[in-house]
Design a protein around this nucleic acid. Structure first.
Lengths: 127, 127, 127, 127
DNA sequence: GTGGTCTAGACCACA
DNA sequence: GTGGTCTAGACCACA
């Protein structure tokens, strides 16, 4: 399910973070579920344990998982969905970059909205 | 017009690249226009000439500007707006990241489309 | 194996690029092999790390090597040998220059073909 | 006949040199013929007079033209076709680069020989 | 004046 | 240890 490609410019630990977020959004992981251990996941993905650990720590900072010593890492039960201005600004900055990039592909506003909706359907598993 | 923030994690040369793309999209720079020289822009932005040069070289590789030795750097006259699969995939991957991120801010499909449209209006100068 | 001559007009980073391409063609480097690190090669060749880095980045853009952050630079496993019109045109333009130059050395078509074949044998190590 | 493209990486003065060499090889210019004046040619090609001048000076160094003060520039009558080791080495080095480049386009020895012959026919006007 | 290459070396993220 | 970014500044070819 979770795929890692070391050749991508996206750091591996970020790929792990997004992979887990995707599995949560798709409902594969639910609140309270136990995540694979650092060692386990690093073995399966053939990546460095430090890299998995870094991803888990980051996910904990975002209140998405809870690390309980001696027991393991679990999907947090209390989602913190308050909108932080910083994160919202990041999304807006990302949209800006995408818009500028799309312009050179001949893609306009309607095209991007269409792509965005399509990606939503894709993640929801409708495609 | 072109602002650089060295504190951002986005590399300075990328900020220059996006800044120029934005000025083109806004119509400030038009096909055939001469960009500021490497030295000039580096002085104005108080960054190193090499950093500006790196941005210009990258823009040239994307066919957005033409570097003419001994004369200067100019906005390309023949836009190459063919859709490359690679670049389209990058946009889709970016959307995916945004969707996953937005989910934890309590933002759904409609919210993101709204944000995207708003950013378009912003770039077009309507806001 | 890889020789750099700073006195040549050919930029050092291009000499590195051609040197590595030659080692690949000769079979010294094979798909998946790890190249020397930027620091290592810069020390061996007594050139600046930035210069080696520039060569590696260029080789990556040509899909000849894969740069994996934190791990190293590797010979690409999936060769992309599709003929791009642009590159083919470059070769033809180079041939044209050579023909014009050869004409003033009293060298004609047969002489050049002979020289070309000889160079092939040389690269294959038959000479 | 003589075309200049400032966007190419080949310096303009070199394009002028090769253009004139080509016109000689094609027989358009013959021994003793007068070349256009520096001003004339720079006006026609809309390039800097210094650039044309640099090309003529270089052609004179190669004994291909003779600059006679107050009269103009003429195609030399005594071709110096002696093979200089330096120029021959340059051609061999160029062939080496082409071979390495061609390898990544999937072109081998026979393909290059074929391309070379084709370019000869093209220059001779057979195509 | 213009961009291209290079050095020497710092600091950083990532694995 | 690995590559990525950046500075400060030199020297060069070209127009």
């Amino acid at each position: 399910m979770l795929k890692i490609d070391a050749r991508l410019s996206t750091p591996i630990y970020e790929q792990v973070i997004f992979g887990i977020k995707e599995l949560i959004l798709k409902g594969v992981f639910k609140a309270g579920d136990k995540l694979p251990s650092v060692r386990e996941l690093s073995t399966v993905l053939t990546i460095n344990p430090n890299t998995v650990s870094k991803a888990y720590i980051e996910l904990e900072k975002e209140n998405i998982v809870e690390v309980i010593r001696g027991k393991g890492t679990f999907i947090a039960t209390d989602y913190n969905t308050s909108i932080s201005k910083e994160k919202l600004d990041n999304i807006i900055a990302d949209f800006k970059k995408i818009i500028l990039e799309a312009n050179y592909l001949g893609l306009g506003e309607k095209d991007l909205i269409s792509l965005l909706s399509k990606e939503y359907r894709h993640i929801r598993g409708e495609i």
